[in-house]
Computed example of a mutant assay.
Amino acid sequence: MITDPLFYAAAIPAILIVGISKGGFGGGLGMLAVPLMSLVISPAQAAAIMLPILCLMDLVGLWSFRGKGFSPLLKTLIPAALIGIIIGALTFRYLSDQHLKFIVGAIAVLFTLNYWLRPGSKEPKQPSIPRGGFWGLITGFTSFSVHAGGPPLNIYLLPLRLEKGLYIGTTIIMFAAINYMKLIPYSMLGQFDTANLSTSAVLALLAPVGVRLGYWMHHRISEAWFYRICFVLLFATGSKLLFDAFTG
């Protein structure tokens, strides 16, 4: 098991923030954990440690938002995500730590800039099978590599202007399906060694706490302020990873 205090200084707040985001704010910051943990360990190891924890969070989230989710969207997104996962598994061995740091950092920075700079509200778009299939595939690939499927999924979902509860329920079901599908290739690639699984087991104690706290905050805390703070942190960690990728 990892014993470095610096790792837990990064991992504990990351898991709580991800749990809160999944439990009450649509899970858009699920990608925050790997960038934070990658400041101390390799992105590949961070992703392996996070996957069992994400699966546990998904179970709590599915229970909290049971009965919600837009099935016509999911019928397009989930099969496309499976193709993306397969592509991610086949290309995993060709990506070094520097490649992964660049991918994680670029997604974090670009997603944050899009959040800050995107134009105001527009008319809702209608669901599209071609667009849903494309962004579902990208979601599966980026989710497999570094659990960063939130940005591409939001690029497709946010313009649809779904009702808040329906949007959160759809994202929870989507990522629950993706995360449980990822368990098989992660196992085949040897990602679940004793050190990673034992570290996951310790950190997993925080998973239901974070998700239930997010569910409680869903109706009590300003979503705007939560995201303002977290996106500043996400931009900072993404920038640091990009710096490491280019100077390593």
Rank of each mutant, 00 (worst) to 15 (best):
S143A: 12
F144A: 03
F144Y: 00
F144M: 05
F144L: 03
S145M: 13
V146P: 06
V146H: 06
V146R: 07
V146Q: 02
H147R: 10
H147P: 10
A148E: 08
A148N: 13
A148M: 15
A148Y: 08
P151M: 11
P151A: 10
P151W: 08
P151R: 11
P152K: 05
P152R: 06
P152E: 02
L153R: 02
L153E: 03
N154G: 06
N154I: 01
I155P: 02
L157W: 01
L157N: 00
L158S: 03
P159T: 05
P159N: 07
L160K: 00
L160W: 03
L160M: 00
R161K: 14
L162Y: 00
K164E: 03
G165E: 14
Y167H: 09
Y167S: 01
I168M: 05
I168N: 04
I168L: 05
I168F: 00
T170C: 00
T171F: 00
T171D: 03
T171W: 02
T171E: 03
I173V: 14
I173S: 01
M174T: 14
F175V: 08
F175S: 08
A176V: 13
A176R: 13
A176E: 11
A177L: 04
A177I: 04
A177F: 08
I178L: 11
I178M: 10
I178D: 05
I178E: 06
N179E: 00
K182S: 10
K182P: 07
K182V: 05
L183C: 03
L183M: 10
L183W: 03
L183V: 12
I184T: 15
I184A: 11
S187W: 06
S187A: 11
S187I: 03
M188T: 10
L189R: 04
L189W: 03
L189A: 09
G190I: 10
G190L: 06
Q191K: 15
F192M: 12
F192V: 10
D193K: 08
T194A: 11
T194N: 06
T194C: 02
T194K: 09
A195K: 14
L197R: 04
S198F: 14
S198V: 13
T199S: 11
S200H: 01
S200V: 01
A201R: 12
A201C: 13
A201N: 11
A204I: 15
A204P: 11
A204E: 09
A204Y: 08
A204N: 11
L205V: 12
L205P: 15
L206S: 07
L206I: 07
L206G: 06
V209Y: 09
V209S: 10
V209G: 10
V209Q: 10
G210C: 09
V211R: 13
L213A: 14
G214Q: 04
G214W: 05
Y215M: 12
Y215P: 12
Y215I: 14
Y215C: 12
W216C: 01
W216D: 00
W216I: 04
M217I: 01
M217W: 02
H218L: 11
H218D: 13
H219P: 11
I221T: 02
E223N: 07
E223R: 04
E223M: 03
A224C: 09
A224I: 13
A224D: 14
W225Y: 15
W225C: 11
F226E: 05
Y227N: 13
